[in-house]
């Protein structure tokens, strides 16, 4: 049987006990799940996207279903970075020893810098994940993630403000050339990349003749986007030399292996948590037997082999 330490992966200078990480926005601040299972089975946790100021987010309905997935327009509801670093993260650290990833959004470069540098002061935060790809807020978010120049500007500014922490940039799939944006982030000093965020999507209630989601459009995620995410991870991972966290439609241990073969060093599980809140734990438990059946002795060996 594959030993537990054969699930370890390294992200920048951090060692994760396994590559499985619930993706931002699909696992709250971790604390919400603390009563359901021991979070220490997880390699890392990417926390709910946070901004400088508290935000209510968008009106309801925020959720719509699609074949094989869903659309959300939560709109970055969060209590603000101050609550993140003084309450949420310290509370999580008390019960969780793995990698804590703060996911940060902003509406201007100045705001990204302020919020990221405040997060970087928190000793319990291991990685800053900069979200330049949220499709659900106006005047920001994804606007920074759709051009190589803007992505590079945010990256350089944030990295300059957080020299001591690994900075990952979370990329949008809603672009014509994700490799160009990934390279621009790497050149601007990013320590790693997370991809992909959600695709812009929509559903219409044909009886009421209006969008299902109050915000009209939302971020499309879930199993249906896995092949798209996989191809983007594969293209990017082979074009850059910094680590990639693969994300998008991952729902099983098989998907984790596929993402890693495509080039991901760690794998984030997103919408599937909403369907099965135990899925990350189940994937971690299933990985050794799957590796055994595939002749994988150490999970690190498969990163980028395809």
């Amino acid at each position: 049987m594959v030993k537990e330490d054969k699930l370890k992966v390294s992200l920048c200078s951090l060692e994760l006990k396994n590559p499985v990480i619930p993706a931002s926005g699909t696992f709250g601040f971790g604390l919400e799940m603390a009563g359901t299972y021991d979070l220490n089975v997880l390699g890392g946790i990417s926390l709910k996207g946070s901004t400088l100021e508290p935000r209510f987010g968008n009106p309801c309905p925020r959720i719509a279903e699609t074949p094989g997935g869903m659309i959300n327009a939560v709109g970055l509801q969060n209590p603000g970075v101050e609550v993140l670093v003084t309450e949420k993260v310290p509370a999580l650290r008390k019960i969780y020893g793995g990698c804590i990833i703060a996911n940060i959004s902003g509406f201007s470069i100045e705001e990204y810098v302020k919020t990221c540098s405040r997060s970087a002061q928190c000793p319990d935060i291991d990685i800053i994940e900069v979200n330049i790809s949220c499709p659900n807020v106006h005047g920001g978010g994804m606007a920074f993630g759709t051009s190589p120049e803007a992505a590079a500007q945010v990256t350089a500014a944030v990295k300059a403000a957080c020299p001591s922490k690994p900075v990952f940039i979370k990329l949008s799939p809603n672009v014509s050339d994700i490799v160009a944006i990934a390279r621009a982030c790497e050149d601007a000093g990013a320590d790693g990349l997370t991809l992909v965020n959600t695709l812009l999507g929509m559903r219409i209630d044909i009886r009421r003749r209006r969008p299902v989601i109050a915000n009209k459009y939302g971020g499309f995620s879930g199993r249906a986007i896995f092949p798209l995410a996989l191809s983007m991870v594969n293209q990017v991972a082979h074009a850059v030399s910094i680590p990639v966290m693969g994300c998008g439609g991952v729902s099983s241990a098989q998907d984790v292996v596929e993402m890693m073969m495509a080039g991901a060093t760690a794998v984030q599980v997103g919408a599937e948590n909403l369907v099965n809140p135990m899925v990350c734990k189940e994937i971690v438990e299933q990985l050794p037997a799957l590796m055994e059946s595939l002749g994988i002795t150490d999970i690190k060996d498969i990163i980028g082999i395809v």
Binding site: C60, I63, P277
Partner: peptide, 22 residues
């Protein structure tokens, strides 16, 4: 009642305004 994502408090898909906050 609200349209829900997870049903267990992790996605914040069904948040409403209350006098006590979100």
């Amino acid at each position: 009642e609200e349209r829900m994502g997870c049903g267990c408090g992790i996605c914040y898909g069904c948040t409403c305004h209350t006098t006590e906050g979100a």
